[in-house]
């Protein structure tokens, strides 16, 4: 699947951007031309110059150095939050599709409860209890994003739980674990990857909003979001200033999203192939119940898509057949 994904141009560009960001995360502090914390009152809010390539902020600190040095914190926090969301969301989501109604019911109610928590207040609470640093804040953000992972994973897994090959594996006496591992996991991963990319880009931005409140990042430590936030306060004096941190955040988030799209496209063939799967016995059951309760039980899914002009919109089965023959 990885190979297939990398065949997409967008995936290649995304991977290049993300690799560059990763390099910055590792070597950013070393690459910074000046001390990111060094203040110089007389140089505040300067435009780009040979000394300060990207200008200075309201305390006269070098913006380029602050961005380079802040990469690591920003990337780590985003990864932390996503990882926490994955653990608390994707795993229960996968289990929920397989462990039967009771687990599913309870997991769903817990998810509903988490979704009612207000993000900022919860984050403030967490930092109050666990101490004001980025890790507790990101734990909180990740935890709050877990319902997204839960829902997305569960929905994706449910699509495959009823697939006939899962039933067929059950008839061989395969355990739930084996079925998830062999038949379901690889089909759900693209969906989870899309959610993870979205969640990571969201986390990058959330760091900045927390910085406004002085939560998580303790000044003067630099982050992308922090640089952006401080620049936004001085828009009158330096209207160009937010552009660079914003572009950095957008590039990274955009690369993550594009990669997620490419993953989805690369695996999309199977998704469409399988979504039609519905067990035949279920059709029989539906047919039988329809006789008793007309109108009550008609399942549009069995009838396929609707169409205004009956003649025109139908996937050309023969053409599909032709494609297969010539591919073989």
């Amino acid at each position: 699947m990885l190979k297939k994904t990398l065949r997409f141009r967008s995936a290649q560009i995304s991977v290049a951007i993300l690799l560059a960001v990763l390099l910055l995360a590792i070597f950013g502090s070393a690459l910074a031309p000046q001390d990111p914390l060094h203040q110089s009152v007389k140089d505040f809010l300067q435009g780009p110059s040979s000394r300060h390539w990207l200008g200075t902020d309201y305390l006269g600190r070098d913006v380029l150095s602050r961005l380079l040095a802040g990469t690591r914190t920003s990337v780590t926090t985003a990864a932390e939050a996503t990882l926490v969301g994955l653990v608390f969301g994707a795993i229960p989501g996968l289990l929920s599709a397989f462990l039967g109604t009771w687990f599913d019911f309870i997991a769903n109610r817990i998810t509903d409860a988490i979704m009612t928590l207000p993000t900022i207040v919860f984050a403030i609470g967490c930092t109050a209890v666990l101490g004001n640093s980025l890790t507790p804040a990101m734990l909180a953000i990740g935890f709050l994003s877990s319902p997204l992972f839960f829902r997305v994973t569960r929905a994706a897994a449910l699509e495959f739980v009823r697939a006939q090959y899962v039933e067929s594996a059950e008839l061989f006496g395969a355990s739930r674990f084996r079925i998830v591992r062999v038949h379901v996991l690889n089909k759900v991963i693209p969906t989870i990857a899309v959610a993870a990319a979205m969640s990571a880009s969201a986390a990058l931005l959330i760091v900045s909003s927390l910085t406004f409140l002085g939560i998580g990042v303790v000044p003067p430590a630099p982050t992308w979001g922090g640089v952006l936030a401080s620049d936004l306060s001085y828009l009158n004096q330096a209207p160009w200033a937010p552009i660079v941190p914003a572009v950095l955040i957008m590039l990274t988030a955009g690369a993550l999203n594009a990669l997620a799209d490419a993953i989805r496209d690369a695996s999309g063939v199977h998704v469409s192939l399988l979504s039609a799967a519905s067990s035949k016995a279920a059709t029989e059951e539906a047919a039988a119940t329809e006789l008793t309760q007309p109108g009550d039980d008609a399942d549009p899914a069995f009838l396929g898509a609707n169409s205004a002009n009956p003649v025109i919109d139908k996937i050309d089965e023969e053409a599909a057949d032709v494609n297969r023959h010539s591919a073989a």
């Binding site: 008609a298 069995f302 009838l303 396929g304 898509a305 609707n306 169409s307 009956p310 003649v311 139908k314």
Partner: peptide, 15 residues
């Protein structure tokens, strides 16, 4: 006029 194999998929299921 045309008729195909799977009549259900050419009709709107809710009308």
């Amino acid at each position: 006029g045309a008729v195909f194999q799977d009549p259900g998929s050419y009709l709107n299921p809710s009308v």
